[in-house]
Design a binder for these strands. Structure first.
Lengths: 107, 107
DNA sequence: ATTCTATTTTAGCAATATCTAAAATACTTA
DNA sequence: TAAGTATTTTAGATATTGCTAAAATAGAAT
C-alpha cells in the first residue's frame, strides 16, 4: 500500500502561513476593512471613500496604495477622479465571513 | 411607508470594524496561525506546539498568552504540563476559509 | 501657459509587534 | 526541603504600522 501523507510538511505549512499572514495583515485594520466594505457595493472614488470612512485623503491614499499593491483592489482614472474597485475573490470570501461574525443585528 | 435603513450607521460600522480588526490582528501572524492550525486537531501542550511550530518556548508562550487573552484558546494544567485548546468558533470559521485559500494542493 | 481639483508621495513621529536572554513561578519528585 | 521540569514573565532591542503636514503629480478648465 502506498503511504499517503495527508499532513503538510513543516516548510509547506510555513509557506502557507506566511502567505496567509501577508493577506490577513492587509485586512487587520479597521479603516482598511471599512474601505473594502464600501467597495463591495461597487467602485468608488477616493473622495467618496474618504468621506464614508472618515479619513484624511493622504491617509486613505496610503491605505489604497497598500491594498492595491497587495492585489486586493485595482484603480482606474476617469477624468479627474480615480475609481477603486475590489478585485480579490479571496478578500470577498473573508469579508463575507467577517460580516457574519461582526455585523449581525442581534449578536 | 416606513423608511427602513438597511445600511449600518457610521458609528456601528466603525465599532464592527474595530472588533474585526482586533480579531484579525490575532490571526495575522504566521506563527500564531500555525499554532491555531495545530490546535484544530485537538489540545496540545506548550512543548509539543513549540516543536511543531519551531519557536522558542518563551516566544510561543507570549503568543499563547495573547491568544488566550483574546479568547481564542483556553488552557488547563494537568501535572507538569499545560494543555491549550481552541475555543473560538469564529476563529475556526476563518481558519477554515484560510485553509481553502492558502492550503490547497494545486493552487 | 496658468490655475484648479483630485490624488499621491515623502518625511518624520508615536505607537505597536515580536523576538531573545534572563529571571521568576508552579508543580513534581527525590 | 532541595532539585528538576514546564511554563511564564520581564526587559530591552529592532522593525513595522499608521498618522499628519507638506510637497509633488496628473489631468481639466480657463
Amino acid at each position: 500500500m502506498e503511504k499517503r501523507n495527508l499532513s503538510l510538511s513543516h516548510e509547506a505549512m510555513q509557506r502557507h502561513a506566511s502567505e496567509a499572514e501577508r493577506f490577513l495583515k492587509e485586512l487587520a485594520n479597521a479603516n482598511r476593512l471599512m474601505v473594502l466594505c464600501h467597495l463591495v457595493s461597487g467602485e468608488k472614488n477616493v473622495g467618496d471613500i474618504a468621506e464614508a470612512v472618515g479619513l484624511s485623503q493622504s491617509a486613505l491614499s496610503q491605505h489604497l496604495a497598500r491594498l492595491k499593491d497587495a492585489g486586493l483592489i485595482t484603480s482606474e482614472r476617469r477624468g479627474l477622479m480615480i475609481y477603486y474597485r475590489l478585485c480579490s475573490a479571496e478578500a470577498q470570501a473573508v469579508l463575507a465571513v467577517l460580516q457574519l461574525i461582526f455585523c449581525r443585528e442581534h449578536p
